[in-house]
Design a protein around this nucleic acid. Sequence first.
DNA 1: CAATGTGAATGTATTCACAGCT
DNA 2: AGCTGTGAATACATTCACATTG
Lengths: 233, 233
Amino acid sequence: MAGTPRIPRPTAARVSLYLRELERRLERGESTIRSRELGHCLGLTDTQVRKDLGHIGHLGFPGVGYRIEDLIARLRFLSGTDRGWRAAVVGVGNIGRALLSYDRFESEGFRIVAAFDSDPEKIGRHVGTHEILPMERLGELVRERGIRIAIVTTPPAAAQDAADALVEAGISGILNFAPCRLEVPPSVVSTEVDLGMSLLQLALQVRLVNGELLEIEEDPARSGPVRARSIRR
Amino acid sequence: MAGTPRIPRPTAARVSLYLRELERRLERGESTIRSRELGHCLGLTDTQVRKDLGHIGHLGFPGVGYRIEDLIARLRFLSGTDRGWRAAVVGVGNIGRALLSYDRFESEGFRIVAAFDSDPEKIGRHVGTHEILPMERLGELVRERGIRIAIVTTPPAAAQDAADALVEAGISGILNFAPCRLEVPPSVVSTEVDLGMSLLQLALQVRLVNGELLEIEEDPARSGPVRARSIRR
DNA sequence: CAATGTGAATGTATTCACAGCT
DNA sequence: AGCTGTGAATACATTCACATTG
């Protein structure tokens, strides 16, 4: 029974896109949607939407489309956001505070149930309703409060230590805002949100779109059939 | 016209990864690196690294590797982060404030040179060295200060208006933290960082890795026992 | 020689085309 | 009729294998 249903990675990455759009439409009172329309407003083709949703379960009605409510239920079930994930924030700096005040997680199926920091100055202070707790209590509280996901917002120098402590405590996933790669065992999922990297990627795209990249060989006198090593400045 | 040299999208997405690792190594005093090592610490194969760097320009030396300094120069040139990008923050809430205090952008080739908000209460106040300016002055200041990139951190309801104003002002790229899709003309690049979506993707990956997805066949709501059709595989 | 750069082979994702439902 | 679901065809990305190079 090893048959993992295996959802292709690109499809999995689009699940959250679908979910957000579907919830918006449900709020507006719509009850069904066709693949063409869903795709169009998300910048995808209708075929791609059907392929994706096909991987997820056969929920469409030929001639009609998809029932939005069923689709949402399915996607929330898949992502576990129907049951709610309990999460912790580790590192209460500027970004950590912003996340602790972000009121949208709750409705999206996540609940932040603890905030940790290693700075003794900060311990015991509050951010909104969250008390800042010492790192020493991390293992204990992860178990007691059923925390499975952690958001790391420490300075980069402290991020690996935080990750080690989280792994030790038995966490399942880490969302890492520190601009560094974390070493974790393969059973733990770690993904990164690096603001600098996001900006850089945006900048690169801007240059590509605007055709600002004259490209290759800075030396125009050079264009012979012989490629390979040319000049490198 | 010569076909755009076109860097494949996955390659472009890895540029920022390479750059971050290379800069770390340069700081440590290393001067060359081989594709195998660079790939290993980034979770890529050596071949993939060579293919990527091959798209970017021929900078390697057989038998030796790549000169880190040259590679960094090339990647920064490509992304325009050698000249510096001037950026604005639009929407000074929790996340906006965190970004205005984020001291890392400068060294990565970006400078935040203006902060805007539509709330009259906030106008004139300061976050760090940044004065909060009224949206009305956006067009003027984008031109005066050479702003090409904007970071949108308004509530979702205000994000599209902000985007329209930015497009009108002649911005080239938008990094959008509001959890909604922005409509922009194709000449403007808009990318999204949705914290909820990031968490949801992480959650989905955790479930996939942990094999929590038993995967049920179809919902029995309204489908007779006959399923002759749609047997896949 | 040891590592790059790159065609050829493989693997994966998207798009096409259409059979089959409602 | 209109739309879904899906094999077949295409496009794209990664990996392999090796000739080439400083």
